[in-house]
Amino acid sequence: MSRKQIIISWLSLIVLTFISVLANDFIDNFQLFIIVVMLIVFIKGQQIVDTFMELKTAPTFWRLLLISYTLLIPLIISIIYLM
């Protein structure tokens, strides 16, 4: 992974962390708040898997396995909180 991509991923992770923390102050609707926070978790997880773990250039099976984890866990958590 290029140095530029690593820096962009790091900056996006920092910005997304602050957005998820501040979301509580700006979003009154609890359901929407959960969806936004868990969507941010998925995007951050995808950044870590693809850029930091370098799985973007790995065999598709392994990349999908890790990406599906970052999708499924926030999805299950969202469903539990929204039930």
Binding site: T17, S20, V21, A23, N24, F33, I34, V37, M38, I40, V41, K44, G45, I48, V49, F52, M53, T70, I73, P74, I77, Y81
Partner: peptide, 20 residues
């Protein structure tokens, strides 16, 4: 990769315990 996994876990753990 192991270290990034530790980071990945915290990315989920942090909102679950501190934010929601």
């Amino acid at each position: 990769s192991y270290w990034h996994m530790v980071d990945l876990l915290w990315i989920i753990l942090f909102p679950l315990i501190y934010v929601i």
